[in-house]
Each structure stands twice: as structure tokens, then as C-alpha cells.
Measured scan of single mutants.
Amino acid sequence: MTDQQAEARSYLSEEMIAEFKAAFDMFDADGGGDISVKELGTVMRMLGQTPTKEELDAIIEEVDEDGSGTIDFEEFLVMMVRQ
């Protein structure tokens, strides 16, 4: 866990972390443990947004600390705390 990830967790109660985990699992449609650009786009479109591929890439790049091209749960928490 990076310093950013530990800091993000410090702002959240266990209840909030559990709620974010449920949301993360909804995004992680294939159950792979991370959110891909495609999965992020699908959920955002379900919520009425129309992000471009470039916008989706930028969202993932902003929090993808390990350079995997996807968002894992710890990175997702950082993203949610920043919102």
C-alpha cells in the first residue's frame, strides 16, 4: 500500500470502505479485481455520462499508481477520497 493509499484509508470509516467496495465490485464486471477502461466506460454510460476514450484513459491514469492500466481497489479508494 502506497502512502497515498494509506492516507485515503485514514479518511474513511470501515462502513464507508465497505460501501466503496460494493461500488467497486459493480464497476469490476468481470470480477478480475480491477477496473478496466471498458468497465469504467460501461458504468459511466449507465449513469448517463458519455465519456470519450481519452477521458476514460485520463481518469485511470490519474490514479493508476502501479502503471497497470487499470484501477485496483486501493487506487479506487484514492480516487473516491479525491472527489
Rank of each mutant, 00 (worst) to 15 (best):
G31S: 04
A23F: 15
D64W: 08
Q83D: 01
A29N: 01
A18N: 15
G32A: 14
E74T: 04
S68W: 05
S13T: 12
E54D: 14
P51C: 12
Q49N: 05
A58F: 08
M79K: 04
A23W: 06
E61M: 07
G31Q: 02
A58E: 09
E55P: 01
I71F: 09
Y11Q: 10
E65P: 07
V43L: 10
E62S: 13
K53D: 11
T42V: 08
T50V: 07
G31V: 03
G33A: 02
G69I: 02
E65Y: 01
S13C: 04
D57S: 12
Q49D: 11
K53R: 12
T50H: 12
T50C: 15
L56R: 01
F20S: 06
V43P: 00
E7F: 07
Q49E: 15
E74A: 04
E7C: 09
D3T: 09
A18K: 15
D30G: 11
D30K: 10
L47C: 15
D28M: 09
D64F: 04
M79D: 00
Q49I: 08
E65Q: 10
F27L: 13
L47N: 03
D28G: 08
I71R: 00
I59D: 01
G32Y: 02
A29E: 14
I60T: 13
M80I: 07
S36G: 10
F76Q: 00
P51D: 03
A18G: 13
E7L: 07
S13F: 00
E14A: 09
T70I: 09
G41V: 04
G48F: 01
R82C: 05
Q5H: 11
M16V: 08
A8I: 11
D3P: 13
T52L: 05
S68K: 14
E65L: 09
A8V: 11
S10M: 06
S36Y: 15
D28R: 12
T50E: 05
V37H: 10
F24M: 00
K21C: 01
T70M: 14
V81I: 03
D30H: 13
L47G: 03
V43Y: 00
T52K: 08
K38C: 12
A6F: 14
R9A: 11
A29K: 15
F20R: 00
E15Y: 01
T70Y: 06
A23Y: 01
G67V: 08
Q5T: 03
F24D: 00
F73D: 00
M16A: 13
V63T: 13
A22S: 15
P51Y: 12
S13M: 01
V63I: 15
G32Q: 09
L40K: 00
F76A: 02
G48K: 10
Q49V: 08
K38Q: 10
M80F: 07
D3C: 12
L77Q: 06
D66C: 11
M80D: 00
E55M: 04
R9E: 10
F76H: 00
M16L: 11
D34K: 15
G41T: 05
D72C: 13
K38I: 12
F24V: 00
S68M: 04
D30Y: 02
G33P: 02
S36L: 13
D3Y: 11
S68T: 12
Y11W: 07
G69D: 08
E19F: 00
I17Y: 07
M80G: 01
I17F: 04
Q5R: 14
E55R: 08
D34F: 05
G48S: 05
Y11M: 09
T42I: 10
I35T: 00
S10Y: 15
D30M: 10
M26I: 01
Q4G: 07
T42H: 15
L47R: 01
V78T: 14
A29V: 08
E62V: 08
D64P: 05
V37Q: 03
E61A: 15
Q83H: 14
Y11D: 03
F27P: 01
F24L: 00
D57H: 08
E54S: 14
V78F: 09
E54P: 15
T70Q: 11
G48W: 01
I60E: 12
L77C: 04
A18T: 14
F73Q: 01
P51F: 15
G69W: 02
E54N: 05
E7S: 08
G48T: 03
E75I: 04
R45Q: 15
V78C: 10
G31L: 04
E7Y: 06
Q4N: 14
D30C: 05
M46H: 06
A29P: 08
D64Q: 07
F73H: 01
Q4S: 13
F76T: 00
M16W: 02
A23Q: 03
R82W: 13
E74Y: 08
V78W: 07
Q83G: 15
R82S: 08
E74W: 03
D3K: 13
T70E: 08
G33Y: 02
E39I: 02
Q4I: 14
F27C: 13
G41E: 13
I17W: 05
A8H: 02
E55D: 09
M46D: 04
R45E: 10
V63N: 14
M44F: 06
V63F: 15
V37E: 02
I17K: 10
T42F: 03
M79E: 05
F24P: 01
I17Q: 05
D34S: 13
T50Y: 14
Q49T: 09
L12M: 08
S13H: 10
E7T: 11
K21W: 01
G33W: 00
V37W: 03
R82T: 04
E74V: 02
Y11K: 10
L40S: 01
S68Q: 14
M80Y: 05
R45W: 05
K21S: 02
Y11L: 12
F20A: 13
M26Q: 08
D25N: 13
A29L: 14
D57R: 08
L77W: 02
S10K: 12
R45Y: 03
D3E: 13
L12P: 11
I17S: 02
E61I: 07
P51H: 09
